[in-house]
Amino acid sequence: MSSPILKLIAQRVALGLLLLLAVSVLIFAGTQILPGDVAQSILGQSATPQALANLREELGLNAPAYVRYFRWLGGVLTGDLGTALSSRQDIATAIGGRLWNTLFLAFWAAIVSIPLAIILGLLAVRYRNGWIDKTISGLALASTSLPEFFVGYLLVYFFAVKWQIFPGISTVYDGMPFLERMKAIALPATALTLVVLAHMMRMTRAAILNVMQSAYIETAELKGLSPFEIIRKHAFPNAIAPVINVVMLNLAFLIVGVVVIEVIFVYPGMGQYLVDHVAKRDVPVVQAVGLIFAAVYIGLNIIADIAAIVANPRLRHPK
């Protein structure tokens, strides 16, 4: 019954995996193009040629690039992301805790921002061109126009420094009580919400307004439905695909785009980890984090595609 759907979904997943493979090649190639190699980075500028040669032999850096690529890829597939050069720590272990922190922050930012954006979008359509719509759109535009670091510092200034409601530095540690943790992430989560809210809200509004031109909206009006019922029951279900798309894009941003916010609030997440190790020229870590970010991005976009396919009654119920 749903064979065309299954086929489409299988296509999307296969395409996503292929894309991820291509990205891994790109990441690997990119780090190879950089001047100097791992041995040079470890031993520093003053290393003797003999010491370099020994270390290269030890790390297997003399093998051709494609061999090293497959060795790296094989490690990634078996959960071995390698060892960080700077700290000699296992990257997978280090990333484990930080990825969880990033997801925790992204989750709470998403829980607040997605429903809020959609509700505000619906309200803006219901009172379109009125003062409510203009206020919502204006505030949304203003919050997008401000750079995220500015929003972050603004929050820190008012909530941490002036009124001292929330901490300005979001320190979290293992075994921290839940409420403490929530209090710690309040400001970065708010900043993230403000950053992604406007985009989602405006796209929701635009998608629904587009559907509001349809003849079936007139049919609903002529049945005597109230304006809000019309939007909820007749317009929104047909606008769901573009809305899901923009929601997923922003979810991806919440996970991979938090670098700036994490640095501002000194939050121990993936973004901060990445920035730290870029500064230390720790190539294996940069590779690993880049690959994980790419996987998250591609994965969420596949989910958006699949959701859009499933939301289409023409595909769900073929003739």
Partner: peptide
């Protein structure tokens, strides 16, 4: 609103466009 769909109903030129594709 009380009379639309109750006392007076409407049949459109293009039913294909006038039905909501999602329901």
């Amino acid at each position: 609103r009380a009379l639309r769909g109750r006392e007076v109903c409407y049949v459109a030129q293009s039913a294909a466009a006038a039905f909501n594709p999602a329901h």
